[in-house]
C-alpha cells in the first residue's frame, strides 16, 4: 500500500514537472550605491522561461510583467484649501502603504495582460501597490488623496508604469530596463518578474536590489541619524572654521 502511494506521488510530481513553467531572471545590478555624484541609474532585467519541453505555438501567448518596488511606508498626503484668504494645508489623509519608488513594465497593455483578480492578489499596477486602508477624516475622500500621491510621484519620476517595455525574444527570453531616478531613497528594493498566461500568473520570480548610500554620503547620513549631537557639533565647528579661514584669506588678499 505504501509503495503504491509513493509510486502515485512520483507520477503526479513527474506530470506536474512536465507542465510547470518557471521564470528565472537576473539583474545587471544587485546593489545600487548612492554616491555624492549619483544621478540615477538603470537596471537591466533579463531572464528566461524554464520548461520541460521545447517551446511551441502555445508559448506565443506568454506575457511578462516586471515590477520594482522601493521601501514601503506610510505617507501623509495633505490638501490645501483657502482659509481666511490664505492657502493652507487643511486636510490630511495618511496613505497606509506607499512604496517610495515603483516601476511596472509589461509586455503589453496591462489590462490585456493581467486580470483584475491577479492584479489585486499580487498588487501589480500602481493603483493597487499604493494602499489606503484606514478611515479618512469627515471631509476627505481617501481615493482623491491616493490619486494625488500617485500623480505627484509619477511627476517626480518615482512612479512609472510603462507598457511594452518588456521585450520578448523568441518564446523564452525577455528583457527590460528600469530607470532609477536620482532622488532615490535608501533601502531594499524588490524586483518581481511575473510570468502570465491567459491573464493569469503562472510563476513569480522575486529578488532584491540593495540601494545604499556609500562613501561620504553614507558616513554623513549615518552620523546625522545615529549621533545627531555629534553631527550638530561638527556642523557648527566646520562652519566656524570656514568663517575663520574666509576672514584670514580675505586679509591676505587685501595686503
Amino acid at each position: 500500500m505504501k509503495a503504491l502511494a509513493l509510486l502515485l506521488g512520483l507520477l503526479v510530481a513527474a506530470s506536474a514537472a512536465a507542465q510547470e513553467e518557471r521564470v528565472i531572471a537576473a539583474l545587471s545590478q544587485r546593489a545600487v550605491g548612492i554616491t555624492a555624484t549619483f544621478t540615477g541609474s538603470e537596471i537591466f532585467i533579463y531572464g528566461a522561461v524554464e520548461r520541460g519541453r521545447f517551446p511551441d505555438v502555445r508559448d506565443d501567448e506568454l506575457d511578462f510583467v516586471i515590477t520594482v518596488t522601493g521601501p514601503r511606508g506610510p505617507a501623509p498626503v495633505r490638501r490645501k484649501s483657502r482659509v481666511l484668504g490664505v492657502w493652507t494645508n487643511t486636510a490630511t489623509v495618511e496613505i497606509d502603504e506607499a512604496p517610495s519608488f515603483y516601476a511596472v513594465a509589461a509586455s503589453g497593455p496591462l489590462d490585456e495582460v493581467l486580470s483584475e483578480t491577479e492584479d489585486l492578489r499580487h498588487r501589480i499596477t500602481i493603483d493597487k501597490a499604493v494602499r489606503v486602508v484606514g478611515a479618512a477624516g469627515p471631509d476627505a475622500d481617501p481615493a482623491d488623496f491616493q490619486k494625488a500621491l500617485i500623480r505627484l510621484r509619477r511627476e517626480s519620476g518615482a512612479y512609472a508604469q510603462s507598457v511594452a517595455r518588456v521585450q520578448t525574444i523568441g518564446r523564452t527570453l525577455f528583457q527590460t530596463r528600469v530607470d532609477l531616478p536620482s532622488n532615490l531613497v535608501e533601502g531594499d528594493y524588490a524586483a518581481r518578474v511575473f510570468l502570465l498566461r491567459d491573464r493569469k500568473v503562472v510563476d513569480v520570480f522575486e529578488t532584491r536590489i540593495e540601494v545604499r548610500k556609500v562613501g561620504m554620503e553614507r558616513f554623513l547620513h549615518e552620523l546625522a541619524f545615529d549621533q545627531p549631537r555629534l553631527y550638530g557639533v561638527l556642523s557648527v565647528v566646520i562652519a566656524l572654521i570656514a568663517g575663520w579661514i574666509a576672514s584670514e584669506v580675505t586679509r591676505l588678499l587685501r595686503r
Partner: peptide, 28 residues
C-alpha cells in the same frame, strides 16, 4: 545660529552638511 544648527541637527536631523558647505564656499 550655532545653537539653532545644533538643536535642529540633534532634534530634527535636518542639517545638510554638504549643502551648507557649498553655500558657505559660494557665500565667502
Amino acid at each position: 545660529t550655532a545653537l539653532t544648527t545644533y538643536l535642529h541637527a540633534a532634534q530634527n536631523q535636518t542639517v545638510d552638511a554638504v549643502l551648507a558647505l557649498l553655500l558657505i564656499v559660494g557665500g565667502v
